[in-house]
């Protein structure tokens, strides 16, 4: 099964290729293909690691074992010949305290969307989100499925510290901070659910293909 035109493949240094299947906007079926190709590509000769992004895939290989053009050709055939992998993930319900001191951008977000505070929160909690990819920092989920009405471009100046558990919005994407770190996304609430715990048997809670529903644990101005 083929989705859209052939993906763009570019060098990311001498030992990696970036396969980019993105069209004008993020697409769920393309992402399912990304997951499937990521898994299949791990079996290619000389491939060391694959890292799915948003409708794209980074493939690391040993250039002394194989070479970029050979890996690139194999990725093109995998992309054309692999079936998208339907998500068989877990559903996670994440309680969120919206607004207040730990959700300082809530009022600004509602104003940006021209909706009431309550309506904004209801729409955020009504959607079902899909974990498209884990990346940037340990356990950080890129969530697709945000109501388009709730999109809000990222901040011009990233904050140097956004707290662990912050529920955030960046453009058309939603996310949750697995640890305190810099971020340019807006903070709309807070959850106590831990996404990353190095002591746990499996330190990262969410997997690509998992789904998430936010539950309203409280709303504060």
């Amino acid at each position: 099964m083929t989705i859209g035109p052939a993906p763009r493949i570019s060098l990311a240094g001498s030992g990696a290729l970036l396969l980019d299947g993105a069209q004008a906007r993020f697409d769920d079926t393309t992402q399912e293909l990304v997951w499937a190709v990521a898994e299949a590509a791990r079996g290619l000769d000389g491939v060391r690691e694959t890292a799915p992004g948003m409708n794209n895939l980074l493939v690391l290989f040993d250039p002394l074992v194989t070479d970029a053009s050979s890996v690139g050709e194999q990725l093109q055939s995998l992309w054309a010949g692999t079936d998208p992998q339907m998500a068989a993930g877990t559903l996670h319900r994440i309680p969120v305290h919206y607004g207040g001191a730990c959700g300082e951008d809530l009022a600004g977000w509602a104003a940006h969307c021209a909706l009431s505070l309550e309506e904004t929160v209801n729409r955020h909690a009504a959607a079902t989100y899909s974990v498209a990819a884990i990346g940037a920092m340990p356990g950080f989920p890129y969530l697709s499925g945000l109501d388009p009405r709730l999109n809000w471009p990222r901040r011009k100046n990233p904050r140097l510290k956004v707290a662990e558990g912050a529920v955030i919005i960046g453009g058309a994407q939603a996310g949750i901070m697995p640890m305190t770190a810099p971020s340019g996304w807006h903070i709309i609430g807070h959850t106590d659910v831990r996404l990353f715990d190095i002591q746990a048997q499996s330190p990262v809670l969410l997997r690509p293909g998992d789904t998430i529903q936010f539950e309203i644990a409280g709303i504060e101005q």
Binding site: G13, L18, A22, A51, G53, M54, L58, A136, M137
Partner: peptide
């Protein structure tokens, strides 16, 4: 651009036009 994986050594150009070289502890995306 949508978020994508990057490797150490990647030279990004943010809107300021002043490049950033990403290194060992860079974000993975």
């Amino acid at each position: 651009l949508l978020s994508h994986g990057i490797v150490p050594g990647t030279i990004q150009v943010p809107p300021s036009g002043q490049p950033i070289v990403q290194l060992a502890d860079a974000n993975t995306c």
